[in-house]
Design a protein around this nucleic acid. Structure first.
Lengths: 149, 149
DNA sequence: TATAAAAAAGACATCATTATCTTTTTTACT
DNA sequence: AGTAAAAAAGATAATGATGTCTTTTTTATA
């Protein structure tokens, strides 16, 4: 569904939302170690997110990445747009060019409700809200890739 | 979600389920033209499906591919196993190695119900039943890739 | 001002997917 | 038997995703 790149990016954004702020910036190295993702690859992704104003950054000593309060008003959807593009969410599960309620593929009505649900979540729920609901449960730990628990 | 290869394969199987039988075999060329997929690539996929006994074939003049009644008792799931493998269905949407109800990623409870639904459909509904429900509506036409309608 | 730390940028390497092309095997039919 | 049609198999090519390495730019601070 999502590329590795996009998964890394989403997890980074959520990680930064939880652990960083204007006065506590975090470097690529630390983020990559924490999320257990390839460091130079993640650097590219953070650059891209930075270009699209989804994460903030400062260069130089004590520099790093962080999420401003404004950044936290973005949605996961914006991250997906930035890294993968969102075309795939429009596409038919079986790859048909014209597939819709009028002219459905054999799995259309199985897949369509899910798309609605997940798209609504990704589009409408801000990063900030994600953090809130993560802190409600103990989901914070699960941003890591590994099974260290 | 599914690779192109797998989408082509599923559509081919459904196409054969509708249009072929023991005494009406169809060649790769015709299938590829009908579904508008790359012909030599589709040939590879049909070979793979044939090795896994998901489609039947005979060589030589008047040979071709077809679905026997037994073949029609398979599920879409078997096609996915054959072409893509089904690992991706076990994996977390955000790529976390340990993600489950006990230890959920931030989107776990959004994604999990869908997985159940679609997996049940893919695993338990036979090709034959797919054909029946396709013929109930007019979904047959939508196996094509293009918007000719 | 010099230095070092950090992101930004660009070039390169690797791998899987997608796709094509060629040769071989099988088999019906003349 | 010979031929032609079709799948099966194998080798090769093109592309995009993934990942690494090196250089440049920016900036805090000694």
């Amino acid at each position: 569904m999502l590329s590795n790149a996009c998964k890394y990016a989403i997890r980074s954004v959520l990680y930064l939302a939880i652990h960083s702020n204007e006065s506590k910036k975090i470097g690529v190295k630390a983020i990559a170690e924490e999320l257990e993702t390839p460091q130079p690859f993640l650097a590219k992704l953070l650059q891209q997110l930075s270009r699209d104003n989804l994460v903030s950054s400062t260069k130089g000593p004590n520099g790093g990445f962080f999420l401003s309060d404004m950044d936290k008003q973005n949605a996961i959807w914006n991250v997906i747009e930035s890294i993968d593009g969102t075309d795939k969410f429009d596409n038919c599960f079986l790859g048909l060019k014209k597939c819709n309620g009028e002219n459905p593929c054999p799995v259309h009505f199985i897949v369509a409700p899910f798309k609605e649900t997940i798209l609504a979540d990704f589009r409408d729920k801000t990063i900030e809200k994600y953090v809130t609901s993560m802190q409600g449960t103990r989901q914070v730990i699960t941003l890591k890739d590994l099974d260290k628990l």
